[in-house]
Structures are given as C-alpha cells and as structure tokens.
Amino acid sequence: MSGMLAGKVAVVTGSGGGVGRGIALAMAAAGAKVVVNDIGASLHGEGLSAGPAQQVVDEIIKAGGQAVPCTDSVATRASANNIIETAVQHFGKIDIVVNNAGNLRDRVFHKMSDEEWSQVIDVHLNGTYYVSRAAANYFREQESGSFVHMTSTSGLIGNFGQANYSAAKLGIAALSKSIALDMSRYNVRSNCIAPFAWSRMTSSIPANTPEEKARVEKLQKMDAGKIAPMAVYLSSDAASHVTAQIFGVRANEIMIFSQPRPVRSVHMSEGWTPESIAAVGAPALKSHFYPLERSGDVIGWDPI
C-alpha cells in the first residue's frame, strides 16, 4: 500500500478497540504493516481473549493491508519484548511504537489501595517503558524510529480520583522527553498525545451527578478515530523534525501543551531563611501560583 507510512512497521498497543483501534486502522491505511496488540481483557482486567486484536487484524486485511495480532501484555519486560519481537519476526523490522494500552482504577486518594495503584502504574508507565525499551535497540541499530506515547490532561493538569493514572501519565511525558534526549543522536523521535475521546476506558467515568452527566455527554461527542491522524503524522517522515513535544487532540482541534519552565524568581543577597521566605519570597511569587484546577476547569470549552 502507498501512503505516508509505506514500508514501515508499526506496533500499536491496546489496539483492539477505541483510540488504539483507530490508530491501527489509520496506520495500515497509510501503508504500514501493523502489529495489533491487545490482551482482550475487560476494563477491570478480567478475562483474556484474542478476539479484539484479531477483529482489527481482519479489518485491516479486508481493506488490503497487512497486520498480525498479538495478545501479550505490556506490563512485564518479557511479554513486552514479545510484542516487539512479533513485529520483527513477521515483518523483519520495527519502525513505529504507539504506546496506547491503558486501564483505570479510579479511587479518591485516601481510599486508594496499593493494588489499584500498582495495576495502573504497571500498565501505563511501566508498560510504556518496557515496550519502548524493547524497541530501543532496534531503533538505535537502524538509526531511525518513532515513539508515540499516550499521556493525559489528568497528569498534565489534574483530575479527581485519579492519583494512580495521573502519576503514570505525567511520568510518561517525562519518559518521552528523556527518550527524545537520549536517542536524538540516532534519529529517534519521541512525542506524546493527550487524547480527548470516548472509548471503553472513559466509559467507566462516573455519571451520577448532573455535573458528571454533563461532562460525560461532552466526552461522548468526541470520536476516538479523531486521534489517529496525529499519530500517523508523528510516525511519518514528514514529522522528522518533531520530537519531545506534547500534543492534544480533541475532536477537530489540535493543541500543543506547554512544558514546565521557570516563570519568576526572587533573590535574597544574604540567603533565605524560613521567615524571610514567608515575609518576602512567597508573597513575591504568589501572583504566579497555579490555582487548584482539574482538566475540565482549564479546557472547558465545547469541542468543535
């Protein structure tokens, strides 16, 4: 197939449905050979099935593309290695990794269990590391490659009841920056997308109060397939100059997110004491303090 990704081989994790499915289909339509990775479990991790991955593979093949399924988990080093090896064994190489696999275990922080914390960190943050690390040696040897990682405004801005998810997603943004820095000498790029989309994962968001119901209604308008064009672009040679960036995709809207930089400093020639910080330093910086906001407070306009 011809297209922006002709001749490339892509792994898309968590691509049995939702955002990942849209990306896998778009990658194939753009000419890539695709490993469709999904463990086929429920949102809470119960049951494993090859069905979701195979269904997407069947769609790609029916449309004239090339794809193979993979049901290995991203959450351990060994199984993540298997995901990348699936690409190499079937298609001879690996050019693109899209770290999309995810789960949710929402709980207010003071009630969160260690298991709920670990399950989310293992899939999102550790999974992104394991899959990326497995591909890194191939990228280094061939002196090319593109990583696309899914972050979230829950981490970039904040959200209620998602300490585990927020920590993982902000960690992914930092991991992406480090990969971009460490592997730039090998022409390897690493970028993030914060997707706004209705999917099986976001369908677990509570909708009990009028405010929660209104939020869910807005989310339901956001087509998961809208994320795919940015993922394809970032994976293509057309984006060879783009690395270490964080993009947001929200319906027909594309955003670029700021990254932390100093915005104000104060100096005390004789050095600071706790008392002088309270009297002078903190008041001088106060106008630049960030309010306690969640994602919906900052990005509150309706999608277009």
Rank of each mutant, 00 (worst) to 15 (best):
K8V: 03
P195C: 08
I299E: 01
A87Y: 07
G296D: 15
I227K: 04
L175N: 00
P303H: 10
S144I: 07
E211T: 12
E85Q: 15
I96K: 00
P262Q: 04
A180S: 14
I256K: 13
N208I: 01
W272H: 03
Q162W: 05
I299S: 08
I39H: 01
A180T: 03
W301T: 14
M27L: 09
P291C: 03
S152M: 06
S166R: 03
P291A: 13
K62L: 09
G225E: 13
V148E: 05
I256V: 15
Y138L: 13
V98S: 09
S113G: 02
I39P: 03
M150T: 10
I193D: 01
R133P: 02
E217S: 13
M150Y: 13
K221I: 06
T209G: 10
M230W: 10
R261K: 15
E85S: 06
V74M: 01
D223A: 02
I96P: 12
L25S: 04
N252I: 01
N37Y: 08
P206S: 02
T273I: 04
G92L: 09
A41S: 15
A224P: 10
Y290L: 15
V9Q: 01
V266A: 14
H124M: 00
H110V: 12
V88L: 09
N164F: 03
L48H: 14
H44C: 06
L43C: 02
N164R: 00
S42W: 00
G3S: 11
I172Y: 00
